[in-house]
Amino acid sequence: MTELTAAAPPARRQRNAYLALGLALTLAAIAAAALGLLYTPYPPARIDLLHPLARPSLGHLLGTDRYGRDVLSRVLAGGWRSLTLGFGATGLGLAIGLPVALATAYYRGAVDQIVMRFVDALLSIPTLVFALLIIVGLGPGQAQAIVALGVAAAPKFVRIVRSAALSAASEDYVTAAKARGERALYVQYGEVLPNIWPPVIVEASVNIGFALMGGAALSYLGLGTQPPFADWGVMINEAQKQISVTFWPLLGPALAISLSIIGFNLFGEGLRDRLHLRAALADA
């Protein structure tokens, strides 16, 4: 599922509201995660077997989980892991996808053909299955999960960046740069890349959400963050098993993951619109 086209800019008021709300939610997620690094009300892995599945109270604002661990502390501490997963996997996907896409769009021809057949092949594997194959192969761990979700996302980035770069390549400034005899790398990174940021940003912000969900899905299959630590996806998965008994342990991590995903998406779209506007102004 990919964003294929860039929407025309909506009304300015709405656009600014989106960007502001997205930025606020994203910053809130980052702030919570940073706080979790410095301070949590209780040690997040501390077990209190005498008080499992407690309802929210002054002592435990979000209640406790099945082992009596404080849910709020775990949400805060899990934030960093979740964000590292989301940003890390997306960053890796971009790090692989961007150069490949820019190069294929620049050189075209046989290289492009061969690479794109590979990319098509990888795209036709369900992303979750691809990530599963990689993480099972690499073994357990957060770094491995980032690699799995990042590599699995890379083909999609190649597809999107390449199509944007292809249309940019026919623009005058690129032809001019080539005519000036600029080096290939300069044309790719100096001329094409700055002009294709909008779709890349949208895709990246959407992908952060996908990576969070993907991490959660891997944990549903029993291959998530290593216990006793947890990211939000692992917490949701643990709490989901007891949903018919109590939903309190689910509430904190579910809200955290949902609000962050909304934040990333709004921020990405808002930023894209802002860039669109600037590009339009620059053209004028």
């Binding site: 099972v136 073994g139 761990g141 029993g222 291959l223 998530g224 006793p228």
Partner: peptide, 8 residues
């Protein structure tokens, strides 16, 4: 703790 795939 290392949590891993059952076949591995």
């Amino acid at each position: 703790i290392e949590l891993m795939d059952n076949a591995r």
